[in-house]
């Protein structure tokens, strides 16, 4: 049984391969010599106590971390055979392929429709019919279509927090990305909205590779295939979620998931 699983895993394509990644904020090292692989159509959860570098790490995958001044990196992140730090790899291009959903829903102060088609629009799609089609598909895929189809032109801020977050997911999906990065996407939501987002993630993993940072270990256990445990900028353990939560190899992982610290 176990060997069968392993075989199946090996057949999966590697989307991200992180090699010896170090990251500094000024003089403070936030990520230490990370080595990491992310496979196609997996949901990879990243857990760890506050300040362990999990948000920093996920933001490095689409280079959003570079918005912060004085960030330095070393090592490489191979995304589909190309190092994302290569100057030839445009950061904008990377971000159209790797979508991101943030901790707090951050729709633009525009209509629901304009929010979804923002990305396609700035990257050159002008045809109204095509944009409408993109909006509908993206909203259907983010399980929001039925709730908003009659008010696509009303302001996105009229939506509830959970709906706003699904709108932000739709906005990312509109770019037809390959990877979705989610940085604690449910931490600002109530349990019902959280359940909806989790359901959505289970649905989306059929078509997308998902990396999710979460503070909730139950969430990681419920929705992820792989779980990575970070501690003080280091990757302590990365394994199948089941393994991490039942038989972790490292004592520190065990202490964390059993609630002995963190």
């Amino acid at each position: 049984m176990i060997s069968q699983n392993t075989n199946k895993d090996e057949a999966k394509r590697i989307i991200y391969s992180v090699n010896n990644l170090n990251l500094w904020y000024g003089k403070d090292q936030a990520l230490k010599n990370l080595n990491f692989t992310i496979e196609e159509n997996d949901v990879t959860a990243i857990i760890g106590p506050s300040g362990c570098g999990k948000s920093t790490f996920i933001k490095t995958l689409n280079r959003m971390i570079e918005i912060i001044p004085n960030v330095k990196t070393s090592g490489e992140i191979i995304y589909n055979d190309r190092n994302i730090f290569d100057s030839a790899f445009g950061v904008e291009e990377l971000r159209t392929r790797v979508g991101m959903v943030f901790q707090k829903p951050n729709p633009f102060p525009k209509s629901i429709f304009e929010n979804v088609v923002y990305g396609p629009k700035i990257h050159g799609i002008r045809n109204k019919k095509k944009l409408m089609e993109i909006a509908e598909v993206s909203l259907r895929n983010s399980a929001l279509w039925d709730e908003v189809k009659d008010r696509l032109n009303s302001n996105a801020y009229g939506l509830s927090g959970g709906q706003q977050q699904r709108l932000c997911i739709a906005r990312a999906l509109a770019m037809e990305p390959e990877v979705l990065l989610m940085d604690e996407p449910t931490s600002a939501l109530d349990p019902i909205a959280t359940a909806k987002i989790e359901e959505l993630i289970m649905e989306l993993k059929k078509d997308y590779t998902i990396v999710i940072v979460t503070h909730s270990m139950q969430q990681a256990a419920r929705i992820s295939d792989k779980t990575a445990f970070f501690l003080m900028g280091e990757l302590i353990e990365l394994d199948k979620t089941k393994t991490i939560f039942t038989t972790p190899r490292d004592k520190r992982t065990e202490d964390y998931i059993t609630g002995r610290f963190g």
Partner: peptide, 22 residues
């Protein structure tokens, strides 16, 4: 809010696009 700029950057916007469209 910066969150709005981040949202736009994460969709592959350039700085100019963020300034003028968002």
């Amino acid at each position: 809010p910066n969150a709005m700029r981040e949202g736009a950057f994460a969709l592959g916007s350039t700085k100019l696009e963020v300034a003028f469209k968002v």
